[in-house]
């Protein structure tokens, strides 16, 4: 499954990243190298193996639905690059 220059452009768009053509060439090369290395997993027959998504034994973790103290709007907004009253402000959504 070789990655092409066009694939790199598609992945970049999905990841909300942009690159120069030189960088895209570099990524095409590096991703292919890394992916050809990880192809070795296909040597293993895993048809009967359950995927492992969590490494320690845990059942569902529940808590009572009780309101706890939380950050005030003022504090939550304190790192905002741009704000308006108690809202985060962003550029227009439709360009």
């Amino acid at each position: 499954m070789a990655v092409t220059f066009v694939d790199v452009e598609h992945i970049a768009a999905l990841a909300r990243l942009e690159f120069s053509d030189v960088e895209k060439e570099q990524f095409t090369h590096q991703l292919n190298e890394i992916l050809s290395y990880v192809e070795k997993l296909n040597e293993l027959d895993t048809a009967a193996v359950e995927p492992l998504s969590h490494v320690i034994e845990l059942d569902n973790v529940f808590r009572d639905d009780i309101i706890q103290p939380s950050l005030s709007a003022e504090i939550a907004l304190s790192n905002a690059p741009s704000r308006s009253d108690s809202h985060f402000k962003v550029p227009k959504v439709i360009g």
Partner: peptide, 21 residues
């Protein structure tokens, strides 16, 4: 949007995401 670096070169939201990142 909420914290961290934001680009100064974006006219709309989608471009703001992409350029900031």
């Amino acid at each position: 949007v909420r914290y961290g670096y934001r680009t100064e070169h974006a006219a709309d939201l989608a471009a703001m995401y992409t350029k900031s990142r």
